[in-house]
Amino acid sequence: MNIVLFHGKVDTTIIKRGVFKIGNYDLAIIGSGPVGLFAAHYAHLHGLSSIIFDSLSEVGGQPQMLYPFKQITDIPAYKKITGTDLIKKLTDDLAGETKIVTNHKVEQVTKNSDGFTIDNSVFVRSIIIATGAGAFKPKELPLKMDEATKKQVHYFIKDPKEFAGQTIGVFGGGDSALDWALELSNYANIKIIHRRNQFRGLESNVAKLKSLKNVEILTPYLPKDIQMINNQLDVSLKEMGGTQLRNETFDQIIVAYGFKANNRFVKKWGIDLNGTNIAVDRSMKTNINGIYAVGDVVTYPGRVPLIALGFGEAQIAITAIMRDLFPEKTLTIHSTSM
């Protein structure tokens, strides 16, 4: 697989070795979620050279980081597919087609007469912003913890089998908490702690969890203290609206309190926002010529937050970019004709 993954800031030694060829990129894609990855593939079909930047340590965005094993049921051509499998297929499609830079948050975009300079290092002729809900950080467990304790408190899950045979506490009441609890219940004993009796996630998932013998639901409780005792996490829980305290012991904890995310950082590049999203026209262009936006980062009347819709928006943006950069070319729209 020939995809180039470079972790960290672009440095001049790697540029000199030819990994980054300044001036040789038609397109920079900011964000490597499913829509960004598909945009890179579709750009390659049209012969555009592209580079992807992502602030996270790996590609895949929210499907890979937040729900890697969840079955996604609204992707065309797939009755269902996990987040991990979707990202793998999209990434495999990029083999030899593009450069990917992870662990790199784009800070500066400078407009030139014939394109843009990104972070004073890479020159591109056009940009697609595909950052989804934006750079996201997990909301942490609001308890004082030492470093040893923190190692057993998790905000992402990559391999549920690593928790096999353990007692796992899952804190939260949304879809992510329920999805993680369901998946982990195949390997471990689960205790779900939520501050309300009602859950925000799917009722069908709540019903499934209640039917499992190795799952216990503790509501309405909030964590008040956490200690490491004999290499286990001893958590003090306070009943909401009451004074009752109870202590529970876990081998490890999964925290699913949601994530802080926003796209306001694009304002410093001169891009107009509509609320927290980027305003675009029918060609997915922003208020700045040469910069487009696709996926859940954008807003327009009637839009719904679907990955499949983002795929279509990427095709619209790439088509507009081709017409802008190569007006002399006869543009082939359908891949079956390419």
Rank of each mutant, 00 (worst) to 15 (best):
N2M: 08
H7Y: 14
K9G: 06
V10R: 15
D11R: 12
I14L: 10
F20W: 13
G33S: 09
G36F: 03
A39I: 02
F69D: 13
K70L: 01
Q71T: 09
I75N: 14
K80Y: 13
D92C: 07
D92Q: 12
I100G: 14
I100V: 14
I118R: 00
F123P: 08
I128F: 01
I129H: 00
I129P: 03
F136K: 11
P138N: 08
K144T: 13
E147N: 11
T149I: 14
K150H: 08
H154K: 07
G169N: 10
G172C: 03
S176Y: 10
A177D: 00
D179A: 03
E183F: 00
E183Q: 06
L184N: 02
S185K: 04
I190P: 03
I190W: 05
F199V: 02
V206A: 06
A207K: 13
T219C: 06
P220C: 02
Q227P: 08
N231V: 07
N247I: 08
N247K: 13
F250N: 06
V255H: 05
V255T: 04
A261P: 11
N263F: 08
W269M: 01
D272I: 12
L273G: 07
N277V: 09
M284K: 09
V298A: 02
T299R: 10
T299F: 08
I307E: 11
G310E: 01
G312I: 03
I316Q: 15
I318L: 08
A320M: 03
F326W: 03
